[in-house]
Amino acid sequence: MDKRHLPVLPTVSRRSLIRSGVAASAAVLAAPKTAFASFFRERYREMTPAEKREAVRRIVAQAKRDYGVTLDVGTEDVLPHVVFGYALNLSKCMGTRRCVEACVAENNQSRNPQIQYIRVLDLVHGGLDLDTSDHYFDPQEVPVAGHRYLPIQCHQCANPPCVKACPVEATWTEPDGITVIDYDWCIGCRYCMAACPYWARHFNWAKPEIPKDQVNPDTHYLGNRPRAKGVVEKCTFCIQRTRLGRLPACLEACPTGARVFGNLLDPDSDIRYVLENKTVFRLKEDLGTEPRFWYYTD
């Protein structure tokens, strides 16, 4: 849907409004420099390198106050000739949820209220009925005979409905296929959550709670840096890792090797082998979202 048809002002004229009206008085109030700068921040995509450094400095200072942790906030750009793709082997997945644990730890997700990017669905053998699937399953041991497991996370769609729904362009798809959020620009309207058919976006209803000793300091501006209350967050294929060449945390943690990740443009990559040689399908493909996340079986 064209954004102009949404019942929202086309580009929320926050900056122009604030700049014309309130800026002068705010300046007079002589607010602390960081708060001032933070309030009048630019959007990430329009920042100069100097502005990015300044923004990173603010984030690091804020995290120091909140968690007592010195963050390493990366702003690594897209790698040339890389589009990321993910495949998951349903024959191998046993529903251990190790991916969920690793994801929460890696991506500084709120423990309370609980946010998890990956949901592992428990499907009764032979069915793909998501309505009756159970993601609260908790037997003594998995896999349970007759059950199959289907983890769902952000599918990094090539035609992402969430991006179209955002009224303030706070979320977009990077050239390497990762849909990211500028947490400083998100207004928390949650339209993207309504638009996503995979329940892949999550809202911080309260200030995220992360034990200080469990904050992951290796972060990316568009990825796992600590979020504030009132913004939406999502899986970024571990952008802070994958742009450095590492593998996503969920893949590393999988004890059965069910997950495959790689560069779709590299004909020798693992992911290309899977796509070319396995029976693959994508979830809710008929919606036309063009996910870059495939499921396959041996």
Binding site: T96, R98, D138, Q140, E141, P255
Partner: peptide
């Protein structure tokens, strides 16, 4: 496997 699953 089998494994004990992580908490739901």
């Amino acid at each position: 496997g089998p494994f004990p699953p992580s908490p739901p």
